[in-house]
């Protein structure tokens, strides 16, 4: 009697310990071309392909978990996933909460506006104008620091900010240059919009490239993924994925 009970409890405990083998990866799904939701509901993009390639490299089975940008770091901390592959810049602010692998790409920030707007992208030039940005990004922090004279409008996703730029509700939008040029400027919706002149890159704010977010205690996973990034760059997998999305080098130099 006691033995069957004990066996039953053991069986339940085993079942409850859940899918320990699969690695859950948090992705966003609203940041084209890095991460976007396809018509059939699946998530595709550069981030997703890199995540899959890295999983194959370290021999883990991976499951993608779609999480809104707002809640993506909390989701990692609450173990809803084990790694964030969502074009997240490695910054000191975030390093206080989570850890990162080495970078897997790096591209500079950019501000875009209507071609006929005649706007100058300096804080003085944008005074009194409305700038849209995704909440909680490095670009949000940059605008907060320098563009106090502009109205900063915060969006939950980059897609929504782009929609409002096209609709004329905001005068300009700031985000990553690749996400803006391929995710908006080169699409039908982006006709009539251009990148404004200016160098907005500030290492303290924008960080040293984009890495994979990992919980601080998972140093082993961090090191394996960092090694896997080197490995797919060495064996040509990275180049193969890169060429599907970009006709330029998105990795930048080693740092």
């Amino acid at each position: 009697m006691t033995r069957t009970l004990r066996a039953a409890i053991a069986a339940v405990a085993l079942a409850a310990s859940g899918p320990a083998l699969a690695l859950n990866i948090c992705v966003e799904g609203a940041y084209p071309p890095f991460s976007e939701t396809a018509v059939d509901g699946s998530i595709v993009g550069f981030d997703v392909d890199i995540a899959n390639a890295l999983c194959a490299e370290i021999g883990e089975e991976c499951a993608l978990v779609k999480v809104d940008w707002d809640g993506i770091i909390p989701a990692l901390l609450e173990k809803k996933c084990d790694a964030i592959v969502a074009s997240m810049s490695i910054t000191a602010e975030r390093m206080a909460v989570i850890d990162f692998t080495k970078k897997y790409y790096q591209s500079p920030p950019m501000m875009i506006a209507a071609a006929d707007s005649g706007l100058v992208a300096t804080p003085e030039g944008m005074a009194g104008k409305v700038i849209g940005v995704q909440r909680g990004t490095t670009h949000n922090a940059y605008l907060d620091k320098y563009y106090g004279a502009s109205e900063i409008r915060l969006y939950a996703s980059q897609d929504e900010a782009n929609l409002d730029l096209a609709a004329g509700r905001v005068d300009a939008v700031m985000a990553d240059s690749v996400a803006l040029s391929l995710g908006f400027l080169k699409t039908d919706r982006g006709a009539g919009f251009v990148a404004l002149e200016g160098d907005f890159y500030e290492p303290e704010i924008h960080g040293a490239g984009v890495g994979i977010g990992i919980r601080k205690e998972d140093t082993d996973l961090r090191d394996r993924l960092s090694a896997a990034i080197d490995a797919i760059r060495a064996n040509g997998t990275y180049k193969e994925i890169e060429s599907q999305y970009f006709d330029f080098d998105i990795y930048g130099g080693e740092n």
């Binding site: 707002d70 809640g71 770091i73 909390p74 602010e93 975030r94 909460v97 989570i98 849209g132 909440r135 909680g136 949000n140 409008r153 915060l154 969006y155 939950a156 409002d164």
Partner: peptide
Amino acid sequence: TLQDILGAGRTLNARYY
């Protein structure tokens, strides 16, 4: 995009993770 009470809460969450 309006910063109502929930918007304020979200901004706080986003700013300090």
